[in-house]
Simulated assay, not measured.
Amino acid sequence: MVGCSYRNTSDRILIIKCCGDQHFFLERVVFPFELLSFQAPKQALVEVWTHGLGGPELIARHGAEELSSEEGVDAVSGAGSQAPE
């Protein structure tokens, strides 16, 4: 497990979904300007979702190691892997 953090610097509510090995699953709502800290398996995939006019929108994907507490990622910075179009 690795300590991760994600700061929502946008003005929208985001949903963080994290899936990993051995049925690991975490889903949290992150309010604007809130910092979410959590533990996840090293190989876990973290998805950042929001709700647009057409329904849920995937806005970014990150590996858990990219979000390790030492590095951290801001929602507005666009760091990490972007969601497919």
Rank of each mutant, 00 (worst) to 15 (best):
M1Y: 09
V2I: 12
V2F: 00
G3R: 12
G3K: 10
G3V: 08
G3H: 07
G3F: 07
G3I: 08
C4G: 01
C4L: 02
C4F: 00
S5R: 08
R7N: 09
N8G: 01
N8Q: 04
N8K: 04
T9A: 12
T9R: 13
T9L: 10
S10K: 06
S10A: 12
D11W: 06
R12P: 03
R12Q: 15
I13S: 07
I13G: 05
L14G: 00
L14V: 06
L14F: 07
L14K: 03
I15E: 08
I16H: 01
I16M: 05
K17W: 03
G20L: 09
Q22L: 14
Q22F: 13
Q22E: 10
H23Y: 12
F24Q: 00
F24M: 03
F25T: 11
F25K: 11
F25R: 09
L26Y: 09
L26E: 07
L26V: 10
E27M: 13
E27C: 15
V29T: 14
V29R: 11
V29S: 13
V30N: 04
V30M: 07
F31N: 14
P32G: 07
P32M: 06
P32V: 05
E34K: 10
L35M: 13
L36C: 06
L36W: 04
S37Y: 10
S37Q: 15
S37L: 10
F38P: 01
F38I: 04
F38C: 05
F38L: 03
Q39M: 14
Q39D: 09
A40I: 03
P41G: 01
P41D: 03
K42P: 14
K42G: 07
Q43N: 14
A44V: 07
A44G: 03
A44S: 08
L45R: 15
L45Y: 08
V46W: 01
V48E: 03
V48Q: 03
V48L: 12
V48N: 00
T50F: 09
T50E: 15
T50V: 11
H51V: 15
G52L: 04
G52Q: 10
L53Q: 14
L53T: 07
G54C: 15
G55A: 03
G55N: 04
P56R: 15
P56Q: 14
E57G: 01
E57S: 09
E57I: 07
L58R: 01
L58Y: 04
L58M: 09
L58Q: 05
L58A: 02
I59K: 06
I59Q: 04
I59Y: 02
H62R: 05
A64H: 00
E66I: 02
E66W: 01
S68L: 03
E70G: 10
E71G: 09
E71H: 12
E71P: 06
E71S: 14
G72H: 08
G72A: 11
V73A: 02
V73I: 13
V73R: 02
D74A: 08
D74L: 11
D74T: 09
A75C: 11
A75T: 01
A75Y: 00
V76N: 11
S77Y: 11
S77K: 09
G78E: 05
G78D: 05
A79N: 05
A79I: 08
A79E: 11
G80Y: 02
G80M: 02
S81H: 11
S81G: 15
Q82G: 12
A83F: 05
A83R: 04
P84D: 14
E85I: 08
E85Y: 06
E85R: 13
E85Q: 11
